[in-house]
């Protein structure tokens, strides 16, 4: 475990120095600050719009961080040749992949807390109080991005950063939609497409299990099953992806 932790801490430290991260956090700050401009155009819904906009912005910037930074963490080790000194030490492929995965997750958690802190600061400033019920979204995001982290690491094992970035984004958006697509196929009786939608629904991660934004913004109750499902689905799916990733990585050669 010490080896995984060492690689994770090093990955985190290295990612912190990435200029893209700083740019995204600053951009996130600007976007969260600008949520106030939507209030005048939404009669009577100002508070809800600010909350909805805010939690969505945090999610979008987290996705961008995983896409831009997460998909490069394995590639950089090879490109900079730092991998040679790691893979000739007594480190297994699973330890290395897990270290990179947890290092990125460490970064995701820190950024998430920073963005939420900024968001709460602005809601306090704009709305006069902090809506602590929004913390529920934080819980679901923690598991949503654990899974997206695993997807990015998995794709990085066999594709270039550009390809894995595009695929990570696609999987994230399709993963949020498959649930609706499945319902749409049934409603519109599109049996010709049902195999494709079923295939996507079962193979791709279903990110809709983490979507509690409407319930949180409108203060609707969230069932305990939703919490448990988000937790278990994310852990199980991520574990499988990391195991497959380490298997794929074990086939890799360092030219």
């Amino acid at each position: 475990m010490n080896k995984v932790l060492a690689i994770a801490q090093n990955t985190f430290k290295e990612s912190l120095r990435d200029k893209i991260l700083l740019s995204l956090v600053i951009l996130g700050f600007i976007f969260l600050a600008s949520s106030k401009i939507f209030v005048p155009i939404s009669i009577g819904q100002g508070a809800k719009i600010i909350k909805d906009f805010g939690v969505s912005m945090v999610e979008i910037f987290e996705v961008l961080i995983v896409t831009f930074i997460g998909t490069r963490i394995l590639y950089q080790e090879i490109e900079r040749k730092t991998i040679y000194s790691i893979m000739t030490k007594p480190v297994t492929d699973l330890e290395f992949i897990s270290g990179k995965f947890f290092g990125l997750y460490y970064l995701i958690i820190v950024v998430q807390f920073i963005l939420f802190a900024i968001f709460f600061l602005f809601t306090r400033f704009y709305l006069g109080r902090v809506d602590w019920y929004l913390l529920n979204v934080l819980y679901f995001y923690l598991f949503e991005f654990l899974l997206l982290d695993a997807v990015a690491v998995f794709l990085s094992c066999f594709t270039s950063p550009f390809t894995s970035g595009i695929l990570t984004l696609l999987i994230f958006f399709i993963g949020h939609l498959t649930h609706y697509l499945k319902e749409l196929v049934v409603m519109m009786n599109l049996s010709n497409f049902s195999w494709l939608v079923n295939f996507l629904y079962f193979i791709l991660p279903n990110f809709s299990v983490f979507n509690v934004k409407p319930s949180v913004v409108y203060h609707l109750p969230i069932s305990i099953n939703s919490y448990l499902l988000a937790f278990s689905y994310s852990i199980l799916y991520s574990t499988i992806l990391i195991l497959i990733s380490s298997f794929l990585y074990s086939k890799k050669e360092y030219l």
Binding site: T82, S85, P90
Partner: peptide
């Protein structure tokens, strides 16, 4: 193993680098 034209984590100090590699053992 010492690779040809070795490259190490530039953000670490010499001390941190050795501590990192020692942890891999």
């Amino acid at each position: 193993f010492l690779p040809e034209n070795p490259s190490f984590y530039r953000h670490l100090t010499g001390k941190e680098l050795l501590q990192f590699y020692a942890r891999l053992y």
